[in-house]
Every structure is written in structure tokens, then in C-alpha cells.
Amino acid sequence: MIQQYTPTNYKSICDELAATDADLKQIIDTYGYPPFWSRTNTFESLVHIILEQQVSLASALSALNKLRERAQEITPARILLLTDEEMRACYVSRQKNSYIKYLAEALLSGQLNLDDFPSMTDDEVRTKLTALKGIGNWTADVHLMFALQRVDIFPIGDLAAVNALKRVKRLPAEITREQMLEITKQWAPYRTLAAMLLWHFYLSSPRPPKGGGRQS
């Protein structure tokens, strides 16, 4: 059975994590529960995530709003009508333009059907998404977490989540990706909510300014 977090159960899942991990409990005690971050399982959501690759959330949202303004509605057909110049005027890089148009074509051709995702396993969704140009594990992770509300995803390609993990667990700077993934196993089957708590900590706690960036 596919398990999801919902507005009614996500706080109880956070409490369950806090009961077994003092560091996560400290986040809740200090900053409260994370917001209920969610998105729709749509083309627009995937476009938004692609725009968020390796840039700030504010920059990505600015580009998304420009696209909305230009296309009126962000659908595969409308996006494919925009020229490269129009996409560039919406702050979309040449590379991301090609990723977004490739995704639009995959949806219109039937190569990808987002309506299938709710009944598919995490691995099946990931395989479908990462088969597309410009979509890697980070993009698949974010779509699984926020658009499909899957409960057991840890986005190891996300710098904010990784930096928060290092700070909260007081980990050495040279720790490897594999070692960090091993640490996150203690939060299964609720790694998504643990990641949300870490993001909440990252956004709420004072920290020195640093360049952000995410994977595809």
C-alpha cells in the first residue's frame, strides 16, 4: 500500500520521529512544526521544480510567474508555442528551456502520463521521471515528496537538507554521501518528514549566508 502524509497526519508523524530522535525533537521544540509543503501532480509543478534546479527558490518562482504571465496557463501545449526568445525573457536558461520543452513533448506524446503516478511505487515514478532529459534524482525526489506526498524520501542531492543534517547531527565536513544516507535510514519509513524538519530548521535558524544550489 502506498503511504502518504496528509494535513491530518503529518504532525503525528513528526511527533513519532521526535520520540526516537532528540535532535528532531529539538527542532520542533524550538521552531514548531514545519509548514505543510505540498504541490499538485501537474506539468506546472514539474516545470517549477526544473526551474528550482541549482538556483534560489526566489529566482525560480520569479521565472515561473513570468512564464504564467506569458503563457496565461502553464500547459505542455502552451509552453511549446513559446519561442526560445520568449522563454529567455521569462528568465529560463537555454538548458532549462530544452528540459521543459522535452517534458512537454513527452506528456503530449503519451510517453509520460502524470495521472499514472498516484498508483505507482516510488521507484516506478523515479524511473519514469529520470528517463527524461534534465530530470535527475533531486527533481524526482521533490516531485515524490511534495506532489505525491510520499513519506519515505530523503533528497540527498539537496544542499539545504544536507547542510541542515550536518549541523543538527554535528557531522564532520568530510562525511560522505553514503555515510549520510546511512544516518537517514534511522528515520525510515518517514524520511520525507525528517527532511521537512531539517528544511524547517535550515530556514528558521540563523546561519551564515552561503551560495545555494541543487541537483537536477
Rank of each mutant, 00 (worst) to 15 (best):
S38Y: 10
S38L: 02
R39T: 13
R39W: 11
T40R: 05
T40S: 13
T40E: 14
N41V: 11
S45W: 00
V47Y: 03
I49E: 09
I49V: 10
E52I: 01
S56Y: 04
A58E: 13
A58D: 13
S59T: 15
S59P: 07
S59I: 10
A60I: 05
A60L: 00
A60V: 05
L61Q: 15
L61I: 06
L64R: 10
N65S: 01
K66Q: 03
K66G: 01
R68N: 06
E73G: 02
I74H: 00
I74T: 02
T75A: 07
T75E: 08
P76R: 01
A77E: 13
A77V: 05
A77H: 08
R78Q: 11
I79K: 00
I79F: 02
L80V: 08
L81D: 12
L81G: 03
L82P: 05
E85V: 08
E86F: 01
R88A: 13
A89D: 11
A89N: 09
A89M: 07
C90V: 04
Y91F: 09
V92R: 01
R94F: 13
Q95E: 13
N97Q: 09
I100S: 03
Y102K: 03
Y102C: 01
A104L: 07
A104Y: 02
E105P: 05
A106V: 01
A106W: 00
L107C: 13
L107F: 04
L108D: 09
S109Q: 00
G110Q: 05
Q111E: 15
Q111D: 12
L112K: 06
N113C: 12
L114V: 08
D115S: 13
D115K: 09
D115V: 09
D115Y: 04
D116T: 08
D116A: 15
F117C: 12
S119E: 09
S119K: 13
S119I: 09
M120P: 09
T121D: 10
D123I: 06
R126Q: 12
R126P: 01
T127Y: 04
T127P: 09
K128G: 04
L129V: 05
T130M: 15
A131P: 14
L132Q: 11
K133H: 14
G134L: 03
G134M: 02
I135S: 05
N137D: 14
W138T: 15
W138A: 12
W138C: 06
T139V: 06
A140K: 07
D141R: 07
D141A: 11
V142D: 00
V142E: 05
H143S: 09
